[in-house]
Each structure stands twice: as structure tokens, then as C-alpha cells.
Design a binder for these strands. Structure first.
Lengths: 121, 121, 121, 121
DNA sequence: GTGGTCTAGACCACT
DNA sequence: GTGGTCTAGACCACC
């Protein structure tokens, strides 16, 4: 079994397990990982990334807490039946962060027009 | 001597000294801390925040490296004479992050119009 | 041949074979599965639950040990002639667990009256 | 620094880290561990229980997820400022479990009076 | 000293 | 084979 490429940055302050979480979250949001799809087993994922299985386990635990994946012992790990809420949450969070940043910029005296112009098309 | 409120999040992965740096950088960019203004001494800042003076020292060292503040022996610590470049850098970084986030959202299938609408005015 | 619905929770820490045991124990105690009734064969049960026959085998072995079911070679598997002791044991265990829980609640400062009220009728 | 005794059962199917969670949850619900109290550090707790620090870490992570404790890096671990909701949740769960058990018993043909009688006063 | 992360590897139960 | 737990111990940043 294979899967989409997960990219890790070992220099980042973001821990490996969280990068794995973010990557999978992103692929689910992008629709690349579809509901009920089986994903790599902990051992496979660990081998493919060159990290320790425990690190992958921690990532999977967090994803399970976020209801993005479901784990069936001795069967494997699967994308949840319903990923819509999780995806919606992620989008909401992103929109909010953009709002905050724009808010900060306007407080610094940058006009909305200027922001839009600088962001480009 | 007092100063604008610096907010610390002890749960954050961002170290305290860096949060202090970010806070002061922000207040300078916002024009709340103006050029040549004297800011709290290391000891005062440490006391007001309830953190170790070494932590504040580290923050001030970094701010000095970024030429945002200047320490004059026996006189105290002051916002630099020229904060324009530092502010410009910060704005550039913010704009870039917004760009990235918008890029991610469009990849998730959210149209530019929808993003604009959801951000509001 | 069919039978009452057996519900499995793959997320539970309780192993599948034990969940099967508990389900059948419960149906016997409830009188839904009556004495001398024939139940599904290992293969049928396995197929109907979508689990491995070995898992069902293990459950049936345990039930047989508890004298709740009896297997007659080439004939099939049946609820035992006498299920009263098994049922009585199960009730005793339940009562005990309720006692323990009430005990914990009172230690937390919840009065007997409050517990009774909150449980309802 | 010391703290209330935490009892572990190594034979139990309930993992060590979860037993630690349950113990601390219980002490908080009982009011033995009060809000803002500092609890044993990961290393101290590990030493006092004779388990690995990672096991304690996992327990503390879960408790933090349940907002029962708060961790301040380099400072230590503390009972949350507000434990009322957590305690209320725990009580609600207990009540619910009692309800379920009573429900099962009545379905087995045990009358409410009989249950009350057997539980005792 | 504190917590946070990660590795390496073991053992277990379940299927 | 799978996931679940646990140990032992390392290294790190922060304070």
C-alpha cells in the first residue's frame, strides 16, 4: 500500500508528529485522501518516512482525537467515514488566521486596498 | 515607567523570550512604541511579566540584533531612531503568510470570491 | 438460522471475542436466548459479524466453559439446559458494580437522595 | 513535593497511563487535589510509581486534553484553574453508567424495589 | 531543574 | 500481520 508524499522538515520547530498530522489533515481537506481509505500502517509509515513507529503512533493518536482517522486494531488505520466537519474546521481556522493577520496589518496603517494589491491576483 | 501590555502564552510552543520579541516588534510596527521612547529596564520588564530577567535579557539582545531597540549603558533601553526597515520587514512577512494561506485554501477548492466574502469587508 | 443482533465496537479495548461472549451472556440473561435454543454455528456467526471464525471459536469456548452454551458434535451449538446460575452470577456482578459507583459518588459529596433523583424514576 | 497515593494494578487490562489519569481525575473530583495545586513533576511521579517517565507523560497529556491539569514548561504541572466542568462531566458519566446498568437489570426482570433492596441502604 | 521530542526495541493481545 | 503499551535512555530548549 502506498499513499501521498508526506514532507518533513527536521529543522522546523514544529515536531515531526505534528507535521505528519498536518500533512494528512491537508490531504484529507484536499480530497486526496478520501473517506474510508486505508492509510499506511504505523510501521509502514514509519519506514517510509524514516522515523520511529512511536512518532507515527503519536500522530495517528492525535488524528484519531480529531476524528480524521479511525483505527481498528489488527486491521489497520482508515480515513474516517465523515471528514466534512474536520475539513470545515480546518478551513474555518485558516480563514480566521487570515482575518487576524489582515486586522494586524490594518492596525499598522496599511489600507485594505494596499493589502489586496500586494497579495496580487 | 510603564508600557503597553505584553501578553504571554505559557502553553505556546513559542518560547517566552520570543513572545516578548514579537510583542515589542508588534507595538513598534503599530506605532504604539515610538522611536526613541525608553522602554522598561530588563529588571522592570521581568518583574512586570513575572519571568526571569535572563529571559528578558535574551529578548532584548535579539531586538537589539534586529536594530529595533538600542541599549545605552547606564541610561536605559530605547526604541531605535529608525524603525521603518524593521516594520517593513514585518509587514512583508505578514503579507507572505496571507498569500500562502490563501493559496492553500484555493487548493482545497475554495474560490477567491468565497474567501473574500468569508473574510468580510 | 438467525439470532439476536450482536453489536461489536472495534474501538473498544474489550477484545472482539469477549464482546461476543458478553452479548450472548446478556441475551441469555434477558431471556431472549432461551435454554436449549440452537445458536448460529461458528462459521455462520463469523460470517454474520464479518470476523474471523477463530474469534468466534474462542468466544464459544469461553461460553462453554461458563456452561452457558453446549456444543454437540455434528448437531450444532445450543444454549445450555440450565442458565439460571449463569444469569444469577451476571446479576450479582452488575449489582456490585452499581454499589461501587454509588460509593464513589457519595465520596465525591453527592448525597444518596441526589443520586436517586438524578437517576430518575 | 508529595501528593496523594496513586494505586496501580499491573494486571489490569486498563493501561498504566489510564490508571494514572483515573486516579488524578478521582482526587480532583474528591476535592483532594485542589485547583492551581502543583502536582508531582513527570520525573517525580515516574519515580514514585516506579514507571517510566514516558508513561506518566502520556497520562499528563490526556489530563491536559481533558483540561484537568495545565502544564507550564520548565515550571511544572498544575491542577487547572477551573475543575468544575471536568468534575461535573465525571459525575454525569458515572450517573449514566448506573442508569444503563439499572436499565439492563430491569430488562432482565429485576424490579426496581429488588435492586434497591439488594444495593442496601 | 522542568517539560518536549524522538529513538530503539521489547512484549503483548488480537486476527 | 496489526495496533497498544511500556521501558530505557538520549538530546533539546527553556528558565
Amino acid at each position: 500500500m502506498s499513499g501521498p508524499l508526506i514532507s518533513l522538515d527536521y529543522q522546523s520547530r514544529v515536531p515531526i508528529y505534528e507535521q505528519i498530522v498536518n500533512n494528512i489533515e491537508k490531504y484529507v481537506a484536499l480530497g486526496i485522501l478520501k473517506e474510508k481509505t486505508q492509510i499506511l500502517s504505523i510501521r509502514e509509515m514509519a519506514a517510509s518516512l524514516g522515523v520511529n513507529p512511536n512518532t507515527v503512533k503519536k500522530a495517528y493518536d492525535i488524528l484519531e482525537g480529531k476524528r480524521i482517522i479511525t483505527t481498528i486494531s489488527t486491521k489497520g488505520t482508515f480515513i474516517s467515514d465523515d471528514t466534512k466537519t474536520a475539513t470545515k474546521d480546518k478551513i474555518d481556522r485558516e480563514i480566521n488566521e487570515i482575518k487576524n493577520k489582515i486586522c494586524e496589518l490594518t492596525k499598522m496603517g496599511i489600507s485594505k486596498e494596499e493589502i489586496i494589491e500586494r497579495i496580487g491576483k
